[in-house]
Design a protein around this nucleic acid. Structure first.
Length: 650
DNA sequence: GTAGGGTTAG
C-alpha cells in the first residue's frame, strides 16, 4: 500500500510549517491601542443614570431616537457612530446593542461595543448584554479580557456582569475556569444570586461527576439563604438527566411541585430526558400525559425528547409514529429527530434501516448541520464499512461548507482508517483555515494514524502539539509511540513522551519506567536512565537494574558512578561483586577521579560490602595511585569485616 | 429606565 506523501521518502510540505501540524490559532485580539475609557466623576453605577449636565439633559428624546435609528440603519457603522454616537446615553447604546443581537448582527455588535468602550462610560448592562448577545461567538479569552479591563469595582462584581462572564466560560466548555473565576469573584466582593448558581449549575451537565458538583452548589445556595426558583429546578433536573440520575431528577421535579412551582416545557423535557437514560417509556408516557392534562401543549423539544425515550427503549415503531407526528406539526424540519432515530438504529445493529432514514431525510430536504453525516459516518466506521464512511465524508465535503470539530473528527477518522492521506491533509488545512481548534479526539485520531503508518516523528510532533495545548494524553497510545520511537532510534523523543506522561495528572502504568529505561540505555542516554532508575527503582526488575547498572559503569558519566551505586543499594538491591569491580576498573582508568574511588570504597565498606579478591588485587596494584596509607586503611577494614562475616557464617 | 440562568443530536 502506498500512502506515501509522508511515508518512505519526504514529509509532505504541509507538515513542514512553523508549528506542526496545526498552526497556533490566534484567539485573543488585543484591544485597540487608544481604548481609554472616557470617565465621568461618578464611580457609583447608579449615578450614571442621572444626567450630568444641563446640556446633556437637554438633548431631546427625539434627537436621541433618530441617532439610534441612524446607527442601526447606516451602511457604514463607524461613520454613523462618529456622526450620531455622541448624543447617545449609555442606555441608548445598550438598546442598539440588543437590537443588533436580535438581528444576529454580531459583527456590528462587536464594533459598537468597541466604540462604546472607547467613548462611553459603560455600565453593567452594557457588559452583561454584550457577553450574552455574543453567545458562543465570544471567545472566552476575549470575554475575560473585557472583564479584566473593567475598572469600576462595583461594575466588576455586579452579579449580572459576573454571571455573563461565567456563562461565557461555561458555554465554551471551560467549566474548571469558570469555577476558579467564581471563587475569585467572590473574593472580590461578588454576592452570588440564583442566576449565578443556575449558570454554574448548567455547566455541571457537561462534566463528569457534574452531579456531585451540582449538589455542592445547591448546598452553597442554601447556605446563602437563597431560594430555589423554577429555573434553578429546571437546570437541576437537566443536570440529573445528563448525569444519568433519573431518580434524583424525579425527586427535584416533585420537590419543585410541592414548593408550588408549576412545571413548564423545560421541566418536562428535562425529566423526559432523564427517563430516556434507560428508555423508561412507561414513566415517560405517564409524565407526557400529565403534561397535557395540565393544559400544556408539548413543543418540539418535548416531543423530540419523548422520541429519544422511545429509541433508547428500542421502541422503533413508536418512534416512527412519533416522527410522523413531528413531521405533520412541522417539527421535523431540522435533523434532530432523524439523528436520534438513525443513531439508535445503527447502534442496535440495523445499519440498513439507519441508511434508509438517512436517505429519507435527504429526500425531504431536511436541513443538516453535519450531525446526520457524522452519525452515519461513525456508524459505517463502527461496522467496518470504511469505504462507505469515506464516500459519505467526501459527499459532505463536496456539499457543505459548515464544519465543526466533531464532524471534522469523524471525517478525519474515516479518511485515516482508509489511509487517504491526501484527504487527511486537506481536512487539516481546512481546520486551520477555519480556525477550528483540534480537540483531544482530533489529536488522538491523528497520532493513531501516524503510528499506524509508521510516521513516528510526525506522531511525536503531533503529540507535542497536543501536550502544549494541555490536552490530556492517552497513555496506551503514548506508550506505543514511546516504544516505537525507541525502536527506531529516536531515544530522546521517546524519553520526552515518557516525561509528558509522567508529569500529566494521571498516575501512569508501572511498566513504563522500565520500558523507557531500556530505551535510554539503548540510546546511551545514561544520565536520563539514572534519573528514571533513581525515581522508580522499586518498580524496576532485577534484569533491568542489572542492564542499567552495568551499562552505566562502563559508559555513564564517571562522576555519577557513586550515586548510581547508592541508588541501587537504597532501592533494596545488593551491589554485586562484578559491578563493584567494573566501577573500580573504570576509576583506575581515570586516575584523576581517585577521590571518588576512595569515597566509594569507604562507603561500600561502611555498608558492609566486601571486595572480591581480584578487585582487591587490582586496588593493591594501584596503591601508589590511590595513596598507600588510605588504601591500606580501607583494605584492613575490609579484612576485618570479611573475617567477621566468615565467623558469623560458620 | 437596567441584567444574567434551564429542554433534544454527532
Amino acid at each position: 500500500m502506498d500512502i506515501s506523501p509522508v511515508v518512505g521518502h519526504r514529509i509532505h510540505p504541509y507538515f513542514i510549517t512553523s508549528h506542526l501540524p496545526f498552526s497556533i490559532t490566534k484567539c485573543s485580539q488585543s484591544l485597540p491601542a487608544n481604548s481609554v475609557t472616557i470617565k465621568n466623576n461618578n464611580n457609583n453605577t447608579k449615578s450614571k443614570y442621572i444626567p450630568k449636565t444641563k446640556d446633556y439633559n437637554s438633548i431631546s428624546h427625539q434627537s436621541r431616537q433618530s441617532a439610534m435609528l441612524d446607527i442601526q440603519q447606516s451602511k457604514d457603522l463607524q461613520l454613523a457612530l462618529s456622526r450620531s454616537g455622541g448624543v447617545l446615553k449609555v442606555q441608548d447604546l445598550n438598546i442598539v446593542m440588543r437590537e443588533f443581537g436580535k438581528q444576529n448582527r454580531l459583527k456590528d455588535l462587536s464594533q459598537l461595543f468597541e466604540w462604546m468602550q472607547q467613548n462611553v462610560n459603560l455600565n453593567f448592562a452594557s457588559y452583561s448584554s454584550y457577553m450574552k448577545l455574543m453567545g458562543k461567538s465570544l471567545h472566552p479569552n476575549k470575554a475575560l479580557e473585557i472583564y479584566n479591563g473593567i475598572e469600576d469595582k462595583l461594575v466588576k462584581v455586579h452579579p449580572s456582569v459576573c454571571n455573563s462572564v461565567l456563562g461565557c466560560l461555561i458555554k465554551s466548555g471551560k467549566f474548571e475556569n469558570s469555577f476558579d473565576m467564581f471563587r475569585r469573584m467572590k473574593q472580590d466582593g461578588l454576592v452570588p444570586d440564583v442566576v449565578t448558581y443556575s449558570t454554574l449549575l448548567s455547566g455541571c451537565a457537561k462534566v463528569q461527576d457534574g452531579y456531585t458538583k451540582a449538589t455542592e452548589l445547591v448546598q452553597e445556595l442554601k447556605n446563602n439563604e437563597l431560594k430555589m426558583d423554577s429555573v434553578i429546578y429546571g437546570t437541576l433536573i437537566s443536570v440529573c438527566a445528563s448525569c444519568k440520575r433519573c431518580k434524583e431528577a424525579e425527586n427535584y421535579f416533585n420537590q419543585m411541585k410541592s414548593e408550588g412551582h408549576v412545571p413548564n416545557d423545560f421541566h418536562y423535557s428535562s425529566l423526559l430526558n432523564a427517563y430516556s437514560v434507560d428508555g423508561n417509556y412507561e414513566k415517560a408516557e405517564e409524565i407526557y400525559k400529565e403534561m397535557k392534562l395540565a393544559g400544556l401543549v408539548p413543543n418540539k423539544v418535548v416531543m423530540t425528547t419523548l422520541l429519544k425515550v422511545y429509541v433508547r427503549g428500542r421502541l422503533f415503531e413508536k418512534a416512527r409514529e412519533l416522527l410522523t407526528e413531528l413531521e405533520v406539526l412541522g417539527y421535523a424540519e431540522e435533523e434532530m429527530p432523524y439523528c436520534l432515530l438513525m443513531d439508535a438504529l445503527s447502534k442496535a445493529g440495523t445499519i440498513d434501516e439507519a441508511k434508509l432514514v438517512f436517505s429519507e431525510m435527504k429526500i425531504k430536504n431536511v436541513k443538516t448541520d453535519g450531525y446526520a453525516y457524522s452519525i452515519m459516518i461513525s456508524a459505517f466506521i463502527r461496522n467496518g464499512l470504511l469505504e462507505d464512511a469515506n464516500e459519505l465524508a467526501s459527499e459532505f465535503e463536496a456539499k457543505y461548507e459548515k464544519y465543526d470539530v466533531v464532524i471534522l473528527n469523524t471525517m478525519l477518522c474515516a479518511y485515516c482508517r482508509t489511509g487517504e492521506i491526501e484527504n487527511v491533509m486537506k481536512l487539516m488545512k481546512k481546520m486551520d483555515e477555519l480556525s477550528i481548534n483540534p480537540d483531544r479526539n482530533t489529536f488522538h485520531i491523528l497520532i493513531k494514524y501516524f503510528v499506524k503508518e509508521k510516521l513516528y516523528m510526525l506522531a511525536f510532533k503531533t503529540l507535542q502539539d497536543m501536550h502544549s495545548r494541555s490536552q490530556q494524553l492517552d497513555e496506551e497510545l503514548c506508550s506505543t509511540l514511546m516504544f516505537q520511537l525507541g525502536k527506531t532510534g529516536a531515544h530522546a523523543e521517546a524519553y520526552t513522551v515518557y516525561n509528558m506522561l509522567r508529569y500529566s495528572k494521571k498516575p501512569m502504568c508501572k511498566d513504563l519506567h522500565e520500558k523507557v529505561l531500556y530505551i535510554l540505555i539503548a540510546g546511551r542516554l545514561y544520565k536520563d536512565a539514572y534519573v528514571v532508575f533513581k525515581d522508580n527503582a522499586r518498580l524496576i526488575s532485577r534484569p533491568a537494574m542489572k542492564r542499567f547498572s552495568s551499562s552505566f559503569m562502563r559508559f555513564g558519566n564517571i562522576n555519577l558512578i557513586n550515586d548510581v551505586m547508592k541508588a541501587i543499594h537504597t532501592s533494596g538491591y545488593k551491589i554485586g561483586e562484578g559491578l563493584f569491580s567494573m566501577a573500580v576498573t573504570r576509576y583506575i582508568d581515570q586516575p584523576e577521579k581517585k577521590d571518588l574511588l576512595l569515597q566509594l570504597l569507604e562507603w561500600m565498606t561502611g555498608q558492609g560490602y566486601i571486595v572480591d579478591p581480584s578487585t582487591r588485587n587490582l586496588i593493591l596494584k594501584n596503591a601508589d595511585l590511590l595513596g598507600r596509607q588510605q588504601t591500606a586503611e580501607i583494605l584492613s577494614k575490609q579484612h576485618v569485616m570479611s573475617k567477621l562475616k566468615s565467623i558469623k557464617s560458620t
